[in-house]
């Protein structure tokens, strides 16, 4: 079974996989955003037999390939939240999405952040995205920026619908990819066991010496 840590793909030795969850109220456009980002993947594999999987995209950062795996629970929002709690426990990054035209979705962000705080670590990269900026603007950008600052996340406003905003969507994920990649311990190193917890690279070494 594949684990959630950055894994090395045997065929492409340099590819690391990062799991990213996309959270936010329903109908804020999480899925479109994900789709926008991974579009090509989806179209290239229409014959995919196991469900619809446009959740991955390989990016090249500084000459190195990394794979972002995006998770959203589209369609399952009405299932109890606990259902997805285990997602939170092992992700590498979080994208919070709200709908610029819907103030309530912005107000819910705190809850989403709280939710993520409960389950994941506080130092994984986070990004805030205001989606649908093509529509009427109900959330003031300054307010959003403040909020983003307060929580130490970069803010992006975008529209997954408009082609003109495509670059922006791209930028979001590139930013994230950079953040992920620049975390040193991400670099998989040979660890003395099959272990799971590549996280304790450093501690491990010290611990054993």
């Amino acid at each position: 079974m594949v684990t959630a840590k950055p894994t090395i793909n045997i065929n492409e030795p340099s590819i690391k996989i990062y799991k990213v969850i996309v959270v936010g109220d329903s109908n804020v456009g999480k899925t479109s955003l994900t789709y926008r980002f991974c579009e090509r993947q989806f179209l290239e594999a229409p014959e995919a037999t196991i469900g619809v999987d446009f959740r991955e995209r390989v990016l090249t950062i500084d000459g190195q390939d990394i794979k972002l795996q995006l998770w959203d629970t589209a369609g399952q929002e009405r299932f109890r939240k606990s259902m997805v709690q285990h997602y939170y426990r092992n992700v590498h990054a979080v994208i919070f999405v709200y709908d610029v035209s819907n103030a309530a979705s912005f107000d819910s962000l705190k809850q989403w952040i709280g939710e993520v705080d409960k389950h994941s670590f506080n130092d994984i990269p986070r990004i805030l995205v205001g989606n649908k900026c093509d529509v009427r603007n109900a959330v003031n950008t300054n307010v959003a920026q403040k909020f983003a600052d307060m929580h130490n996340m970069p803010l992006f406003e975008t529209s997954a619908r408009l082609d003109s905003q495509c670059d922006n969507v791209e930028a979001i994920f590139l930013t994230l990819a950079h953040k992920l990649k620049n975390q040193k311990p991400m670099i998989p190193r040979p660890i003395a066991s099959i272990s799971i917890s590549s996280s304790d690279n450093q501690t491990t070494q010290t611990g054993c010496c």
């Binding site: 840590k5 092992n90 994984i124 992920l180």
Partner: peptide, 8 residues
């Protein structure tokens, strides 16, 4: 850290 490498 880490963070990242989360347990499966």
């Amino acid at each position: 850290s880490s963070s990242s490498s989360l347990p499966s």
